[in-house]
Amino acid sequence: MKTIVDVKNLTKNFPVGTGFFTALKDVSLQFAEGEFAGLVGPSGSGKTTLLNIIGSLDVPSDGEVVVLQRSVGKLTPKEAAKLRKEELGFIFQSYNLLPVYTVFENVEFPLLLLNMTAEERKERVMETLKWVGLTDKVKSRPAQLSGGECQRVAIARAMVKRPSLVLADEPTANLDSKNSHNILQTMLKLNEELKTSFVFATHDEKVISYLKRIIRLEDGKVVADELIAEPSK
């Protein structure tokens, strides 16, 4: 399988007072195309920091992170924005939908940044909303949706540009058990049908039960990296 993320001896330090705090220490790992993997660990273990660097939102202090043949540490802010715009999708814990726009418009937004024609955008958005089962909510505003529906809109927004990699930070943290499973099943289906890679940062057992690969982090180090042959879900 083609490698889409290559993390080599990654160290990330944050300045704290006169010294610094090391969030990630000499981390090396790879993600292949089509993975459904999770960075698992307690708070402060470095999973969000690693997700940030893979998502070109932050840069390594030492080592190298190559995402889709681009070294994150060497990208200019404009190039990093281009990588996020074209290749990466983000899913947040609190959905972060734009409240004044409809479901359709929220999902359409990333395509506007890609300068697609209105016709192309409409086709893409409707297709994506079909995947997440929200074609009947096209004209609804976020305030009219349930938490689960909002997160499905967020997934559609992340998926609409057909990204190579989707990064999801605690995507089920605000959802009840039933909605969490619905969301995870949707993401799993997209992973299997579109071969989109998903990398989660989570400590939620419900998410972990769906993962095909679990990378355990503790104090900024990878302590376990296991492939799950038969995820429990």
């Binding site: 802010p77 924005a81 990588l83 996020r84 074209e86 983000f90 940044l113």
Partner: peptide
């Protein structure tokens, strides 16, 4: 959000 999605 717009910055995260890829807007300059």
């Amino acid at each position: 959000l717009r910055l995260a999605i890829g807007e300059n």
